[in-house]
């Protein structure tokens, strides 16, 4: 933010600037305090577990989404890609496509192939956007619609149920008492935060989002960066799809990842990433997702109907975006 320091500052303390930077953190802290006072049995490890396990698929998808939005794009296809990876993996480890004798081998193959396929679909998004200069919202709409159809055709729209502990480890297992999916989430968040902050690739993402033409003129391979970013978003969606089906011991192509794109975008927006690109924060996204999750938890456990929770969620998004705008223009 060099332009800000160059300007002579009229006020020493700008409340909007402050809120834009720390608003999510403050909201999260306030929510926790509220719950400690009003929600029964809030102060326990199990509460932390419940909230972390419920939020982790959203966070994983939202990490990919943050990178995409950082370039000024958007990815609507993530929910459908989750459905594809969630439909494909059981077909492989249940031996419906090709029989693999060893269960560990089958599970490994299922995970790798399912996530890679989701990644390839992500690359397809990136290819449409980079090669043909189709607007991201339209390009990813293609797979948003077709992706769920592909998943339904693969499974004939049937529910696949399974009991394969070797696979379900990623959704149900614990390492040193910490749920495996939470560990996965932490690893993905840390790597992405590091990439975005410390690597050339991360700076290129922000540069493209800030001013694509300028980025191109300064020698950044814009097409390549975009391709990779959408590929990463696909990979993240693929991983999240596996976690969802592992927890539920079933895969329903109609439901896996339904509405996930909007949850992820909401988390990114609340977390303080500019939806127009050029400014992105992975930690913000993590906090944003947790805020939305905690709001839902708070309302549910205090007996407020789910429909009302949706309205409150929308209100938070509006508030977050408004604060951001104020912070920018102040």
């Amino acid at each position: 933010m060099t332009d800000l320091t160059a300007q002579p500052k009229q006020r020493l303390f700008d409340p909007f600037e402050f809120l834009a930077r720390y608003g999510t953190l403050i909201a999260l802290a306030l929510l926790i305090v509220f719950n400690l006072i009003f929600t029964r049995n809030f102060a326990s490890m199990q509460t932390v577990n419940v909230n972390l396990t419920q939020v982790c698929t959203i966070v994983i998808v939202a990490v990919g989404m943050t990178l995409v939005i950082g370039t000024g794009g958007i990815d609507l296809s993530v929910g459908s890609l989750m459905a594809i990876s969630g439909a494909l993996a059981p077909m492989i480890f249940l031996g419906k496509i090709l029989p693999i004798g060893n269960i560990y081998l089958a599970v490994a193959a299922a995970m790798i192939i399912a996530v890679l396929i989701a990644g390839i679909f992500g690359l397809f998004n990136g290819w449409l956007i980079a090669r043909f200069r189709i607007q991201p919202i339209v390009a990813t709409l293609v797979l948003f619609i077709a992706g769920r159809g592909i998943a339904q055709v693969m499974t004939n729209g049937n529910l696949q149920t399974f009991r394969v502990p070797e696979f379900q480890f990623i959704g149900l297992g614990r390492i040193l008492g910490v749920p495996v999916q939470v560990i996965l989430m932490a690893i993905i968040v840390i790597i992405a935060a590091w990439v975005l902050k410390r690597t050339v690739f991360g700076r290129q993402i922000i540069a493209i989002g800030g001013n694509e033409r300028a980025a191109e003129l300064s020698g950044i391979a814009v097409s390549k960066v975009k391709l990779i970013v959408y590929g990463i978003s696909g990979l993240c969606a693929g991983i999240a799809g596996l976690i969802v089906i592992a927890i539920n011991s079933s895969s329903d192509a109609n439901l896996v990842g339904l509405g996930m794109e909007l949850d992820a975008i909401a988390a990114v927006a609340v977390g303080g990433t500019l939806l127009s690109g050029g400014k992105a924060t992975i930690i913000g996204t993590l906090l944003g997702a947790m805020t939305i999750q905690l709001v839902r938890y708070t309302l549910l456990s205090n007996g407020v109907p789910d429909a009302a929770a949706l309205v409150v969620k929308a209100g938070i998004i509006v508030l977050a975006v408004w604060i951001q705008q104020q912070g920018r223009h102040a």
Binding site: T39, R40, N41, S44, Q46, T47, V50, T53, Q54, V244, I247, N248, S250, D252, L255, V256, R296, Y297, L300, S301, N302, G303, P305, D306, A307
Partner: peptide, 25 residues
């Protein structure tokens, strides 16, 4: 103690049940 929608779906039902069990042990 509590009555909330789980949308007839396994994943949603699980999440709502987790939350309600925690609030009403």
């Amino acid at each position: 103690l509590a009555s909330q929608t789980g949308d007839f779906a396994r994943d949603k039902g699980r999440q709502v049940a987790e939350t309600l069990l925690q609030a009403h042990p």
